[in-house]
Design a protein around this nucleic acid. Sequence first.
RNA 1: CGGGACGUGGCGCAGCUCGGUAGCGCACCUGCUUUGGGAGCAGGGGGUCGGGAGUUCAAAUCUCCCCGUCCCGACCA
Length: 568
Amino acid sequence: MRWSNLFIPTLRDAPADAEAASHKLLIQGGFIRQLHAGHYSLLPLGLKVHEKVAAIVRDEMNGIGGQEFLLPGMHPASIWKKSGRWDVMGDEMFRVIDRKGAENALGMTHEEIFTDLALEITSYKSIPQIWYQIQWKFRDEPRPKSGLLRVREFAMKDSYSFDIDEAGLDKNFDLHHHAYVRIFKALGLPAMPVEASSGAMGGSGSTEFMVPSPAGEDDVVHCPNCDYAANVERATSALPAIEDRDLPELTRFPTPGVRTIAALEQVDGGAPADQQIKTMVMVLDGAITLALVRGDHKLNLQKLQDHSGAIEIRPATPEEALEHLGASPGSLGAVQVQGLRIIADPALQGRAGLTTGANEDDWHWTGVDVARDIAVDEWADLREVGAGESCTTCATALVVTRCIEAGHIFKLGTQYAEVLGAHVLDPDGTKRTLVMGSYGIGIGRGMAAAAETHHDDNGLIWPLSIAPYEAVVTVVSMKDEASVAAGEELYKGLRQSGIDVLLDDRDARAGVKFADAELIGIPYRVTIGPKTLADGEVEFTPRASGETSRVAIDAVVDQLAAAIIAKR
RNA sequence: CGGGACGUGGCGCAGCUCGGUAGCGCACCUGCUUUGGGAGCAGGGGGUCGGGAGUUCAAAUCUCCCCGUCCCGACCA
């Protein structure tokens, strides 16, 4: 394409309210424009990148035997009610009423709809199936942010596998896992597979593909020595044993003004944080619940949600705490509490001589023996792992890294097939429920993650695989006829070699052209100007290194074609 | 949903405290000069000041309500 004919509205300044690098650069480079919060228009340059990302994903899905579909974006409420997720999805689901007064959902994922189609799989002979689509999802996110990283409307590649047993599911899960590794490598994303929480998808297990970036929204715990890596929502670590204090008597003691773990460490009769019980009063689907962790530990809400199966989860208000426990936050505890669900972290199991709130303002207990004094209903891993704790398999200090979730794959099992009635007959003529997996990659998010990963002070540095153009021919002066003619010739030659090339034929100053080419991140630049043309040469500048070399004009097409084709 | 910031030509901002006829930079149009790293001079076009109500002779400016955006926390590709 010729730059003079393209709509590439680059901006001299990055938008002031953007924070994330990808957000700034995609807007500044003329790739995207915001319509409103969480909704972006893809401009011609942005669409080219988006389509290249989609093409890579599509190739790999086809490579593992995936069949491409395209399903509706709007669904009748009935199918979501049938699966139970009409309620589970809550405010995150866009709902629209049609002229007949019927409820509809804008699709936020497609397990239900694909499963509905899978009702027509009737025999084990048709198994396995991998079905996928690249299609728009709508999610009423509580907080859209960071440009394309978190939006309310986005293209997702979602695929679904159908098997007759767990072994089949495992195989398809692995196929997807490996396909995802190849996809992220091709996108230039250093994604690491990590153990994850399944959230609203349910199922028996899931793996996220995480790209390290300060713009991310998840923390990943990983071991620099062995393979262990998990989302903090799921991660565990080894804890050194703690020696209990010898305080056999349950004793109340006054703690005027003490409201925090730290203050309780200092006060007379107090205790170090690891000898305390932290009592978090939570509301799980409307029910007051006590979540207990060791005083120096942090409660991870997702872990609590996963364990409890609650849909809505929030900390109780001070008023609710007062009503149910008789004291305000800072003096709360679970000792001798009855009639409330109590979930405790295993780090408290068997502990004694502990200190905790006495459910009366300005009073605490000491000498608490968990087994004796607290009616724990359930033990569950609730504790959030911190950096520096020990790996459970190799004892190495764990590292915590902020990451973007670029992909997520789930072992769903039979839950959807069961409620929607997707069964097949096996060789014995026995009815079997389909065992499903579902697998997602956000296309725009992948594009933004690549922008986060590949940029410098001058702009984007797209990986060749997803660059909007592979090369740009920059004609330094459109007034110089020889340059213009050479540029046209080169443009033609590169196109004939199958290279996706952009000709910068704008009547602009050289500085503007160079700056724009760098901002939009074209991997290779060929500069044609009177300075070198007199010697029969042009300049060749890879975006990543910025190092310019002179090349004979007759050789440049072959050289560039060789470089690009070798890297494809 | 809680906390903070903000909304003024296409983009970035000033003006608001103390009400008085809307301004700057970039971009855009015309001309001349310039031309290898975001040119210079001259001339020019373009704004319901987020919306509504109120106070006032007079509102971008003061008051109230609403809407929207961004950032920080609880949610997910």
